[in-house]
């Protein structure tokens, strides 16, 4: 079992002939994802890793019945690609590019809400469902195992670190999802937690957050009625205020977005909050054991 992305998802790759698109198409296929087509204007008729290339999403959807798409085009073109996908019936959209203008992201998520499209990202590593052996994203295949833990993260490599420690600690994963490091992204901790709550295979959840915004504080309110054990690790303890820590969204602005405020809220809501990434597994063992 998994959330959002299942084996049935038929996936397109927008920007499939680029360096990243090509490489990750190969990785996704190797993992078992059902990649059915790629988009690259002007390159219809070509194929990448055996996947047919189309000029438009419209043609690709018509020919393949695709319902999901992963976007690899450069950030200035991301809005165009996202709208092309959504207007042509794509209902799960993963936006990999970093540096998408915030106004474009606002437009994308606004339209997505109208159409009922699930947007993951922008500036995300994507989503992987180990139990279903499928993924839409750029995460390394070998670090995940099927199992009972859902993971929701804001950042990529840090989530790899934690997912790998879960795997090594004997905790496989239902689905691991990266919300993205930008200020405006398609998912919130709450929207993802809600899916994990309704997924019978997910027995516990690990949240990987960071400074900036108030997504963790909002999530804390929801956690009070969540009903499954939650372990949270947040990065940015040593971050000075007013400085962007790599992610556009990771900044303490005018006293808001601090780690203290987030940890306090999550702890009060009953989550087990750890200070360092290597403490997640023990905390999870304890939380699952006592639950």
């Amino acid at each position: 079992m998994a959330i959002i992305l299942t084996k049935q998802s038929k996936i397109l790759v927008q920007g499939i002939t680029g360096h990243q698109g090509r490489f990750h198409t190969r990785q996704m296929l190797a993992y078992g994802a059902q990649v059915v087509g790629g988009i690259s204007p002007g390159k219809a008729g070509e194929s990448v890793e055996g996947v047919p290339v189309f000029d438009t999403v419209a043609e690709a959807v018509q020919q393949t019945g695709a319902d999901a798409s992963i976007v690899f085009v450069p950030a200035p073109f991301a809005k165009d690609a996202a709208f092309e996908a959504m207007e042509n019936g794509i209902r799960l959209l993963v936006m990999i590019p970093e540096h998408v203008p915030v106004q474009d992201s606002i437009d994308i998520v606004t339209r997505a809400e109208e159409l009922g499209v699930i947007v993951i990202g922008p500036n995300t590593f994507g989503i992987i469902s180990p139990g279903e052996q499928t993924k839409m994203g750029i995460m390394p295949n070998h670090i995940y195992r099927p199992g009972p833990v859902g993971v929701v993260a804001r950042s990529g490599t840090l989530s790899y670190e934690i997912a790998f420690s879960l795997t090594n600690g004997g905790f496989g994963q239902t689905t691991v999802i990266g919300m993205g490091g930008d200020p405006v992204v398609g998912q919130t901790f709450i929207s993802v937690l809600h899916q994990f709550k309704n997924d019978p295979a997910t027995q516990a959840v690990v949240m990987v957050g960071e400074i900036g915004g108030s997504a963790e504080e909002e999530a804390a309110e929801y956690l009070k009625s969540f009903g499954k054990p939650v372990v949270a690790y947040l990065a940015g303890r040593a971050a000075p205020p007013g400085k962007r820590m790599g992610h556009a969204g990771a900044i303490i602005e005018r006293g808001r977005g601090t780690l203290e405020s987030k940890e306090k809220a999550l702890t009060a809501a009953g989550a087990s909050v750890v200070t360092m990434p290597w403490q997640v597994v023990d905390a999870l063992r304890e939380a699952m054991g006592s639950h």
Binding site: S155, G181, A235, G246, P277
Partner: peptide
């Protein structure tokens, strides 16, 4: 990665 870099800074301080 931004998250890892933050976590690394945190770990040194820890």
């Amino acid at each position: 990665g931004a998250g890892m870099a933050m976590a690394t800074v945190d770990a040194i301080q820890y």
